[in-house]
Design a protein around this nucleic acid. Structure first.
Lengths: 120, 120
DNA sequence: ACATTCAATTTACATATGTAATTTATTTTA
DNA sequence: TAAAATAAATTACATATGTAAATTGAATGT
């Protein structure tokens, strides 16, 4: 699995959200956080890692897209987080959120309905 | 907030589980994964960061304990993970687990009961 | 008291990461 | 086509991290 750093992830998010984006699209989207040069480094590293790829060149400007599926990435990361912090137990994690009042009965009911729907 | 690396976390877990532990307790517990010297480095770094503290010295051997509460650490990490991967939405996270069938109606019912109990 | 042992401390070193400046090479313009 | 502009690529550098060997210094045995 390709390892993506926190800063790199921000670039990935732009790509996931936009589908495709030029270096400038990316830079514009996150320039409050980073210097253009920094963003270009992140783009290059992601490219070197094989997480993104250029799909087009116009003038000197490349357009990139992600080679990693966002949903799958989330799943892998969530599972490894779960393993690392909660011995792999979803219930332990949820207990945590219940205690913090970040998870209400209404939320749970809503999820139940979703499960029902999926079952059908 | 003190930042604890993945390898360091393994040391913290031993301390959390045991309450207190000598360097050798720690080394023994995780020696399948790391060289003694490596574990000592981790202990030293955790001490330097203020995450653990020596509570006793016997001969040349120190006994350590964690200065960080496990529960709180979990909460902080969970929230930052949530923010990083799910825009802070617990529901988005859960949806993910429902899709993976890692979360069943039974689990949800169980949680509801817990909430009921807490409310009382 | 002195030598020996051994836990602790220091040093080492490669790779990753955040952050950005500098250089290069390709376009575009005059 | 020569000069200027500029996107991309390269280089830089400090800190973090995984990994462990080398050194030190305090206990302990003789």
């Amino acid at each position: 699995m390709i390892k993506i750093s926190d800063a790199e992830l921000v670039v990935m998010k732009v790509l996931w959200q936009k589908g495709e984006a030029t270096s400038f699209d990316i830079i514009d989207n996150i320039k409050e956080n980073w210097n253009e040069s920094t963003v270009r480094t992140l783009i290059n590293r992601l490219h070197a890692k094989g997480a993104i790829e250029p799909v087009k060149k116009e003038g000197k400007t490349y357009t990139y897209r992600s080679k990693i599926n966002e949903e799958e990435y989330r799943i892998v990361e969530s599972n490894s987080f779960l393993k690392k912090m909660y011995e792999g137990s979803v219930n332990n994690l949820l207990l945590n959120f219940v205690k913090q009042r970040k998870l209400s009965k209404k939320d749970l009911e809503h999820l139940m309905n979703l499960i029902d729907e999926e079952e059908r």
